[in-house]
């Protein structure tokens, strides 16, 4: 009997010693088993469309119970990541070039490309009166130290900004004052933090309800730059994911179109 009690004591002691390990394991299991959803889709999005996508994803999640995981960055970076095997399933680019290239390389599902939004750029400053109504006089007066644009090589909005400046014959003379954001989000942040006096940003960023600063802006005429048709494609990784297909269909419906228009994007041109 005594030896039995002793044994229980020993076991208890051992259990006590194990307790930290036990809690650690439980914590690990809790961390790894984050709540599971019925379905899941990984959406890579050009950063100009991040906030509207969040709204769309929230309503999709509510309706279907499926989860949308969002990865944002510049179109060029996301494209390079997809080429190198990133596990994205839908790609919402800020141009048509990159989705077309993915189709050509066989990395996107055939006939899945559609134009979900048409982007517009604006010259913007968070300060009242900084940007004149026609904008051109502001650019020509050069009363600013830094003009922010997105990287014209990787970000379609940066390329549109470059085309605008070239059209106005100001590209060369303003070159020394240009600061480049890695993508349009960083460009917007440079301007809104007033580190740059003004910048070419996406109209959607100015209209974003999260942005409380109104400031002054000039909506660049759409004849100054090639239209920023933003295409979406389903990627090959999503071949067997029904959630990806459901979300792709959902994107073309009524609610997303409302959101897209509210953010100042032009209507998607189906099949363009």
């Amino acid at each position: 009997m005594q030896s039995f009690q002793l044994e229980i004591q020993v076991i208890n002691k051992r259990l006590k010693a194990c307790r930290p390990t036990f809690f650690f394991l439980v914590a690990l299991i809790l961390i790894w088993n984050s709540p599971s959803y019925a379905g899941e889709v990984q959406v890579a999005v050009a950063s100009n469309f991040l906030n509207p996508l969040r709204e769309i994803a929230r309503s999709f999640q509510k309706e279907t119970g499926d989860r949308v995981q969002i990865i944002s960055g510049s179109t060029g970076k996301l494209f390079a990541q997809i080429v190198h095997g990133a596990p994205f399933e839908i790609f919402l680019a800020a141009d048509q070039t990159r989705p077309a290239l993915l189709l050509k390389r066989g990395l996107a599902v055939k006939d899945s490309a559609f134009t979900y939004a048409q982007g517009k750029i604006a010259l913007w400053s968070p300060k009242q009166g900084k940007v004149s109504e026609d904008g051109i006089s502001t650019l020509k007066a050069k009363r600013f130290k830094h003009l922010a644009i997105a990287n014209p090589k990787t970000a379609p909005y940066g390329s549109a900004a470059r085309q605008t400046l070239q059209k106005l014959g100001l590209w060369d003379s303003l070159r020394q004052r240009l600061v480049q954001g890695e993508n349009i989000s960083q460009t917007f942040q440079f301007v809104s933090s007033e580190n740059a006096d003004l910048g070419f940003v996406a109209l959607s960023q100015i209209l974003d309800p999260k942005n409380k600063m109104k400031g002054s802006r000039w909506l660049v005429p759409e004849t100054y730059y090639k239209p920023i048709n933003q295409d979406a494609v389903i990627l090959k990784k999503a071949k067997n994911n029904s959630t990806a297909k459901a979300f792709w269909k959902y994107m073309q419906g009524g609610f997303p179109t409302d959101v897209i228009n509210r953010y100042g994007y032009g209507p998607g041109l189906p099949g363009d």
């Binding site: 830094h146 922010a148 990287n151 020394q176 240009l178 600061v179 480049q180 954001g181 890695e182 960083q186 440079f190 580190n195 740059a196």
Partner: peptide, 8 residues
Amino acid sequence: VLMVGGSI
């Protein structure tokens, strides 16, 4: 540098 440089 990526955050504060502006790539000039």
